[in-house]
Design a binder for these strands. Structure first.
Lengths: 190, 190
DNA sequence: CTCAGAATTGGACACCTGCACAAGGCATCC
DNA sequence: GGATGCCTTGTGCAGGTGTCCAATTCTGAG
């Protein structure tokens, strides 16, 4: 069994990893900078984790899960047409280079070259879509599953573009984004 | 002045850079692997370019510009409601880890930490949106500018999620994505 | 043919990397 | 007290990094 103290060090290392990933990028995180940031010796990284990569994967996955869970917490009780605005409101709350955004994108990209990470992220996204789908379905939105798919993708795309385009505000986007919840044209109606 | 031969080497280096960025990631491109891939000596990199970073930036920007130009070529003559399907068709034509997709995402992420690159990409995206806006406007789509914004972001988001979700097909997404072109709820009539 | 200047080479430099490991600190048990 | 573990440290290693540069080859104009 590990002591509370060692748990703390593990936690600090994961925290430092998340901070460094967003600040300098996934591949710029080294064992030494990581240990220094966490305030421990360089050797500790390979005592608590099998490898630097394993540490980074765990840091990213837990961090992403936390963001997703938080976004989903207040979701099920709202109507999609209002809840969408609520979600968009968070877009403005974050600075253009929101740490969570960068963490997600860094992880997506790292997953391109790491099967374990890819599996973890896929699982995470499926969970997110399951909740979104149920939420949309309760709100009477047509084709809820695909809409959830598209909504999740659009959210990530918006976050990505927002880093390069600070003018992109929620007020601007909201009315157009709402079209995604509208029923298809009359002739295609089911 | 530089000879045609030297132009060829420059071109080869930029080509090799784009290939390596998509294969191994932006930060994994080293002067030596780059030179080896291009079939030249390691010292040539810093003869033709001010730094490795400058080479990577130029490689990414020219590559992205080419992709954008190609996507825009056959755009202005089509109706948005049909052209959207045409654009989506390309989604299926590319493998899940499409090189162009990875190049874009890698560049977006690198731009987070490089002001020059960020400026270049911003300019590129503005040009893309200008064309998209005109295209949507000609098609009678409401709020064409914001719609273009959102469409560009959604495209990038879809590409990103597609790497993690090969089940995501154009056939599935198309009907829902079409909602983005529908009139806003205020003018809704059915 | 000559030869200046461009193009290219491969190695030197100082630095950083992930990981392994011997050595010691330290708390908790008998 | 002693001692048995976990925890932590700093260093060593082999290798990779960007950048620079003297030396060499190539090329094309006079």
């Amino acid at each position: 069994m590990s002591t509370p103290k060692s748990h703390q060090v593990r936690h600090d290392l994961l925290d430092a990893a998340r901070a460094l990933i967003t600040e300098r990028g996934w591949t710029a995180v080294s064992t030494r900078t990581l240990a220094q940031r966490a305030g421990v010796g360089p050797g500790l990284v390979h005592y608590h984790f099998a490898s630097l990569n394993a540490l980074l994967n765990e840091a990213a996955l837990t961090g992403m899960a936390q963001v997703i869970d938080q976004a989903l917490t207040h979701l099920p009780r709202t109507d999609p047409r209002q809840g969408l605005d609520q979600l968009l409101g968070k877009l403005d709350a974050y600075p253009p280079n929101d740490p969570a955004t960068v963490l997600f994108t860094e992880a997506y990209l790292a997953a391109t070259r790491d099967a374990d990470l890819r599996e973890g992220i896929t699982e995470l996204l499926q969970r997110l879509r399951t909740h979104l789908t149920a939420w949309l379905e309760d709100g009477g939105i047509a084709a809820p599953e695909t809409t959830a798919h598209l909504l999740a993708a659009t959210a990530d795309g918006l976050m990505l573009h927002r880093s390069l385009d600070p003018d992109l505000t929620a007020d601007q986007v909201a009315p157009v984004l709402h079209r995604l919840l509208n029923p298809p044209p009359a002739e295609e109606q089911r």
